[in-house]
């Protein structure tokens, strides 16, 4: 079976085509194309502009994906799209596009939960059987484990998502949003040395990032006012790189800690990192150290599958489609709020 997946819950528009040759065989990625809307430095992407971006690129990307995959319309079995969670206007644009393709081609629609898409793609690519999943992106921060037909949320961010914290700090520093604000922070952090004190907000298996963002913003303002600022302990000059370094070390330690708690709780020693922040190599490295200490292993993917993409929507959608799930046209809405544990996972046991 072959499915086309359409994703546009945030600033990336992705189209992917996946094939499930036969049960038990690994899925084949036929094509996976993406176009990103980047806001200028110092700004975030606004829903209205992002939706416009998605509308103007939609047809071009679908055509490109079909061409690269080398499939004909007749080969496609279903059209999968992101039902939520995400930003309203971009979600709507893509849902309209999905409905159009469904009517035009005469194919069934499958509405997909964005988070479940990330998890299923991560499992498919890495081959992780039953991992604890850390899902970290610009909009979501969750520690998830599978139990009885649902992806259950063991821990989550109580306020803003970890990626949002990074994005907004990049705005404070007015660094480029291209290719991604978090990527540019990661590159800066590589030359940071001084660890500045930031709040550490872990509550059980939950965590909070808003206070950390306020603190690091204050430190950035202090550095701007006093470029000669020196570390009182070592006498070394404090730089923007040190701020990025301190931010990364603190928030990733929090994420690894809550993941470790969840692993101890459910008795698993595999971790799968998904979502845009999951590309971060320092996070992957720290998670690897923790997993090794527990006699386990960490699974992560690269930017093709970590960052929002169409193929993951196709993968999760096709899995649901194969178990008989359909989204009738009149129910093919989208929603900004759609929890991971609301989805009934019929394809796993």
């Amino acid at each position: 079976m072959i499915a086309i997946g359409l994703e546009g819950s945030a600033n990336k528009l992705g189209v992917g085509i996946i094939s499930h040759p036969s049960p038990g065989k690994p899925a084949q990625v036929l094509s996976n194309v993406r176009h990103t809307f980047n806001a200028p430095p110092g700004e975030g992407f606004l829903p209205k502009d992002t939706a416009k971006h998605h509308r103007s690129w939609f047809i071009q990307l679908v055509k490109q994906a079909m061409r690269e995959a080398g499939v004909k319309i007749g080969d496609i079995d279903c059209v999968c799209y992101t039902k939520g969670p995400g930003m309203g206007a971009p979600l709507q644009s893509v849902a309209v596009g999905a409905r159009m393709l469904s009517l035009l081609w005469g194919k069934e629609l499958v509405g997909v939960n964005h988070c479940v898409g990330h998890i299923e793609m991560g499992r498919e690519i890495t081959g992780a059987e039953n991992p604890v999943v850390l899902y970290v992106s610009g909009g979501n921060t969750q520690v998830i484990a599978y139990a009885e037909q649902r992806y259950r949320i063991f821990g989550e961010a109580l306020d803003i998502a970890v990626g949002n914290c990074l994005d907004r700090f990049a705005r404070t520093l007015e660094i480029s949003n291209d290719p991604a604000p978090g990527y540019n922070i990661e590159q800066l952090a590589k030359s940071g040395k001084v660890l500045l004190d930031l709040p550490y907000a872990v509550k059980g298996m939950d965590c909070s990032f808003a206070g950390i963002l306020s603190s690091i913003d204050l430190l950035a303002a202090e550095l701007k006012a006093n470029p000669e600022w020196k570390d009182p302990l070592t006498g070394e000059a404090i730089t923007t790189a040190d701020l990025c370094f301190s931010l990364q070390e603190t928030i990733y330690a929090m994420l690894v800690e809550i993941t470790e708690r969840a692993m101890a709780h459910v008795g698993s020693n595999q971790v799968l990192i998904v979502g845009g922040v999951g590309c971060n190599e320092r996070l992957q490295e720290m998670m690897g150290l923790m997993a090794r200490d527990r006699g386990g292993s960490v699974f992560a993917t690269d930017e093709r599958f970590c960052i929002d993409n169409g193929i993951m929507i196709a993968e999760a959608g096709l899995k649901a489609f194969e178990t008989g799930f359909r989204t009738p046209l009149e129910e093919s809405t989208c929603t900004q709020r759609f929890r991971t544990d609301e989805v009934f996972v019929k394809w796993r046991n």
């Binding site: 660890l195 550490y200 603190t250 800690e257 720290m286 150290l289 200490d293």
Partner: peptide, 8 residues
């Protein structure tokens, strides 16, 4: 914890 910065 080996993954954490020693100061933190």
């Amino acid at each position: 914890k080996p993954y954490r910065h020693p100061i933190l």
